[in-house]
Write a protein that binds this DNA or RNA. Structure first.
Lengths: 272, 272
DNA sequence: ACGCCGGGTTCCGCCTGAAGGAACAACGCG
DNA sequence: CGCGTTGTTCCTTCAGGCGGAACCCGGCGT
């Protein structure tokens, strides 16, 4: 099919999605032939798609009854997406309020592969910003965001972070496990983390964790500003408190299910 | 790649899913090149997958910033799946209890394309059953399940059902809009629907709706048995009450979000 | 202003590997 | 004990997926 001009669309993908959609919408185990009848595609083709989708765990194959159903990877992905979306949606207004109150940049980040990734940033109008951008990564140990999360991580996740290389981003970066751990216990006591020029010279951050129902740090939020502006005791305490309050409100409206630590990345094939 | 013996796996499908997964797990808008760096595939290929996934609305393309993010169709599907799963999980124990109490078959069904579809059935041990099977369909108007749901449907969904052909499954089947509507208002008054030999001779059903937070009938549950066993007044009332109670409990623990009526089926391609 | 650069899109020829008809096998049912 | 239904495998064909490379475009630095 397809004469000229159709987009850059790959048919197998489209059709497989169609099959995925059909199966999932049924909400019950379906058979090959039933699927064939409903998505108008030849049997062999549907068979292959069902197999492929199952191999990727987007579907699950019930060998016992020869049926297919929605698979764990799909569910997992759906959940991750929902959680992340929830997070951003609930964090946004709080971040705006903070940014406005303090007139400084507010960051939202999650952990991923031993680093933190910015997933949202509310900047101030001001020009002077050697600021991160959404999607950028930074080490855990050199940012208040990372430290805020790390402090609430179980030991088995904390250990690898401390023992990894630990690059020095600036002269102030703490690179030894000892100081890091001391800081962590400090964070647990105060409920927030501070970082002064450890990630970038002249820049200071105050970060707080966002915990899920089970106390796991799913994300962190921080206020960042030039060191000079934030340095004074009073300012720091004030900002920290505001951040903590906001984080608490965000935590409160997020799914309270204990988020199972995200599974391993998908395998693409399985040749012998 | 792939010599012999690999399974019936279609590569484009696997790889596109990989791309989908990557994008979704980021929880933020991603660019083509970023994706290319992370899933190890050639640029052109990833581009095509992103396009395809976007065409299917599993992703969404932000033209303004040239970024991709999770799409509405994926979200919709995820939600449907979750709701359905919730439904079954919560309904199961109640159904078992009912089946045990009354020693009769208990059915769970949803509406789909103007018919009802059985999504779960708890049979009794007894042999004599001209019972439906999971996945089977029946008309709305000839089953207590259908009637229970129809009674709580808004008029614009009710109308089409009443005016459609309305096949007579047995001599008892009501096939005129008038009676159907009268029954519906009855159901609304009592909270349950009864059907006696209207779908299958000698078989009687009592059905109750399962409503979501906004009062929309997302499913229905019924007790079905040979007419003679269920006929007596007392029995019917008793069963109806038990069903209503159970349905209420199920409704209570399900997502209370007003489920947006499921969108139109996915288009597969878009040739000129 | 200009040219470089990085990122997105398009082109094109190769050839894989997806497609799908048909044969085959495995049940389950009568 | 066969028939029908459903799942699996085989095989041939050739569409169309692939991916390198060229191209385009907008932003940035000089």
């Amino acid at each position: 099919m397809s004469g000229i001009g159709d987009d850059y669309v790959v048919q197998p993908v489209m059709r497989a999605l169609q099959v995925l959609e059909y199966v999932t919408r049924q909400g019950r185990d379906v058979t090959l032939t039933e699927t064939v009848h409903n998505v108008k595609l030849p049997k062999t083709t549907v068979f292959r798609y069902l197999q492929s989708l199952s191999a990727a765990s987007f579907l699950e194959y019930d060998l016992r009854h020869d049926r297919y159903r929605t698979g764990p990877r799909f569910r997992d992905l759906a959940r991750v997406d929902r959680d992340l979306q929830d997070l951003r949606d609930h964090a946004r207004p709080e971040m705006h309020r903070l940014a406005e109150t303090f007139c400084e940049t507010v960051n939202l980040a999650v952990r991923s592969q031993g680093e933190i990734v910015y997933i949202d940033i509310i900047g101030t109008g001001r020009p002077v910003r050697m600021q991160a951008r959404v999607g950028h990564r930074h080490p855990v140990h050199s940012t208040s965001l990372g430290k805020a999360m790390a402090a609430y991580l179980p030991e088995d996740a904390m250990g690898p972070i401390c023992r990894a290389p630990l690059p020095a981003m600036t002269i102030n970066t703490l690179t030894d496990e000892r100081s890091l751990r001391r800081q962590a216990s400090n964070v647990r006591r105060c409920g927030y983390a501070v970082e002064i020029g450890e990630n970038e010279d002249g820049l200071m951050c105050i970060g707080v964790p966002i915990l899920d129902g089970s106390g796991y740090p799913v994300a962190a939020m921080s206020l960042s500003a030039p060191e000079k502006r934030l340095r004074c005791r009073d300012m720091t305490a004030q900002a920290a408190q505001a951040l903590k309050d906001a984080a608490l409100r965000i935590s409160a409206c997020m799914g309270t299910m204990p988020s199972p630590v995200t599974a391993a990345p998908m395998q693409i094939g399985m040749q012998a």
